[in-house]
Design a protein around this nucleic acid. Structure first.
Lengths: 247, 247
DNA sequence: CGGACTGTTGATCAAGGTCAACCTCTGTGG
DNA sequence: CCACAGAGGTTGACCTTGATCAACAGTCCG
């Protein structure tokens, strides 16, 4: 099967055969994960990133007293936390929340790639930049939006990201997280998450069946979530793309 | 004067003369900024980053109804938002909050550097990673800490970052932001910021004089802020550093 | 002197947290 | 087949944190 990284890179720029081969060698050893498995532990010395092949994971930080913040959800194809290469200790953990498969990618694998091909260097930078964008939007949501808006934002973000990897059909997708996880992602209590989701159903914004979610009114949703259309275009600005071709 | 980027890179890895020269050419045209000047506007098509030479700036996003979230404070030497290179529209704005100087760095300047030297590619990745770390910590603070803890975190973060660039003396530093800005950074109201800062003074944690802040008890501060010592080591793990030397 | 800006304090209010009960599913073991 | 346990979700009652509104004081500045 094609490496998830190659699939992702395709959106970015055409690849040479050599680049494809090099990317294919990354994350060769695939492991299985079960829900609650810790793929990468907080505070441990590090030097690896997680490449998620299938399933869902979360990146989260837990405080000594048990409070927890979910930084983001990790979807299939995501290379989670390569920035930990530059840290002595990981500032957050990565845990599976469903069955899935992943591989651990060592720092030097990526660094060697970058050294060999500056275009790939730009690619990894781009990945980091995309993640930064979602992170900033998440921060705005948690810092300045009401509970209602925050949950709308979360659903909207996941909808968008899942759509990009072909996991949405008719505005319906699976969010394999219980309400306690949603609470930890949005900075709310699980009780309030329940109330808010119910309210959205009552208002015909969202339909829920187990953990399948259907967005009934995307436009209104986006408006509630205060999302501008500034978010994460998957394509590069033309000027940058042109430049990259020359290298 | 030496470019702020070179000064920063020094912490990272020794440079060749050629790399120094190339870095020196970046951000040649220095401009002056006054408080409230918008250096980079939200929603505008972009392709430039801000290299701040002196003074303070903020990166922030403002919602249609006026609510605002400060993403982070930009300190002298920071290269703010190069990730906007990959966006069609900036998702947040950069504004000066003091007098200062800055230059705009075009995307291709950095990309050409990276193409010429993979080590510099790793450097820019590292910058992005550091920023990501602070961003994640900020998210945890806003999502899961109380007002008291959040403000402790903010002060602690700025103290740490300012110390790294030599702007702290005897645990005292200048935070040239009014309390409304602190509120927008922490997701609180300015009234509550005032109350909380007063409480910290009352409890002999913090001394304030205008906008000079003195941390009276760093250890307790760190504890309140729930900061683990996982945060942002400025040095690279040895394995990575060794690898970079070979390129 | 008047106005803008900032910080402080008090009074009141509401969003959302906490606690607890209860219900539905699902799996498990006898 | 039933009894039971555990996880997850929902709802109600009550409470706390921090928001909002408003007044006022100090400072700077034209």
């Amino acid at each position: 099967m094609e490496s998830p990284l190659i699939r992702k890179l395709r959106q970015f720029i055409p690849l040479t055969a050599g680049e494809k081969a090099a990317l294919g060698r990354i994350g060769g050893h695939v492991q299985a994960a079960r829900p609650r498995d810790v793929l990468l532990d907080q505070g441990r010395s590090t030097g690896v990133a997680v490449l998620l092949h299938s399933g869902w994971a979360i990146r989260h930080r837990t405080l000594r007293d048990g409070r927890r913040q979910i930084i983001d959800f990790v979807l299939p194809g995501d290379l989670c936390d390569p920035s930990s290469y530059f840290q002595r200790h990981a500032d957050c953990a990565v845990s599976a929340i469903t069955d899935g498969t992943y591989s651990l990618v060592r720092a030097w694998e990526i660094l060697d790639l970058i050294a060999a091909s500056p275009r790939l260097g730009a690619f990894f930078w781009w990945l980091e930049a995309q993640e930064g964008q979602y992170l900033r939007a998440h921060l705005v949501a948690v810092g300045r939006l009401t509970a209602y808006e925050r949950i709308a934002y979360l659903v909207w973000e996941l909808w968008t990201r899942l759509r990009a990897v072909g996991l949405v059909e008719q505005n319906t997708f699976t969010l394999p997280a219980n309400q306690a996880l949603i609470a930890d992602a949005t900075g709310l209590s699980h009780v309030h998450v329940s109330r808010t989701l119910s309210r959205m159903a009552r208002e015909k914004l969202l339909r829920r069946l187990d953990r399948r979610y259907q967005i009934l009114d995307p436009a209104r949703f986006r408006q509630i979530a205060q999302v501008e259309d500034v978010t994460a275009s998957r394509r590069l600005p033309d000027a940058i793309a042109a430049r990259l071709k020359r290298y």
